[in-house]
Computed example of a mutant assay.
Amino acid sequence: MEKIGFHGLEAHKKSHAAFAEQAADYLHRYKKGTAPASYEVTHFLMDWITQHIKREDMEYAKFAGKK
């Protein structure tokens, strides 16, 4: 992304960092014995797939295809 000058790089990095932070929180809660409800985790993952991968990553893919 940096190499091709993708305009959304910083926002994309922040999005990935937020995903990793939330996933780490779920893991931490699981290890403490206070795991979130499965629907919470499922919703989180489905949102990532539909919002991030299908939209944000596709925006990057379109940008890369123009280069």
Rank of each mutant, 00 (worst) to 15 (best):
K67M: 11
M46K: 13
H52D: 14
A20Q: 12
A17W: 04
K14T: 07
A64S: 15
K3H: 11
T50S: 06
G65W: 02
M1G: 08
E10T: 11
A64Y: 14
H28L: 02
Y30E: 07
E59H: 07
F6E: 06
K32H: 00
A20R: 12
A23L: 15
E40H: 00
A23V: 15
E21Q: 11
W48Y: 15
A64M: 14
I4E: 14
Q51E: 07
A35K: 13
A23F: 12
I53E: 14
A17E: 12
I53Q: 15
S15Y: 01
T42F: 02
M1C: 06
F6W: 12
A11K: 06
E56N: 09
K3V: 12
H43C: 01
H28W: 01
T50D: 14
P36D: 01
K3S: 14
L45A: 04
K66H: 02
K31R: 12
F44P: 04
W48E: 08
A35E: 04
K31D: 11
I49M: 15
A24W: 09
Q51G: 15
W48M: 11
F19V: 09
A37Y: 03
D47T: 03
A61F: 13
G65A: 10
H16E: 10
I53H: 13
E21K: 13
E2F: 06
R55M: 09
A18V: 10
F44H: 03
K3Q: 15
S15Q: 01
A20H: 11
H43F: 02
A37K: 07
K67A: 08
A35M: 08
S38L: 13
P36S: 06
Q22N: 11
K32Q: 04
A17P: 02
A18N: 11
K62Y: 05
P36L: 07
L27V: 11
Y30F: 12
F63S: 05
H43K: 10
H52N: 05
H12P: 00
A61S: 14
G5P: 04
D47N: 06
G33L: 05
Y26G: 00
E2I: 10
G33K: 06
F19E: 08
Q51T: 09
P36K: 08
E10H: 09
E40T: 07
I4Q: 13
L45N: 06
H52V: 14
K31Y: 04
A24G: 10
F6G: 01
F19I: 09
A23T: 07
Y60M: 13
Y39Q: 02
K54A: 09
W48I: 06
I4A: 12
M46A: 00
E2N: 07
E21F: 08
K14F: 02
I49A: 15
E56L: 02
R55H: 13
A35C: 03
S15I: 01
E59G: 06
G5T: 09
K13W: 00
H43W: 00
K66A: 09
D25V: 09
A20W: 05
E10Q: 11
L9C: 06
K13I: 03
H52K: 01
F19K: 13
D47M: 01
S38G: 03
I49C: 15
Y30S: 05
G65R: 05
L45S: 07
S15R: 04
G65T: 02
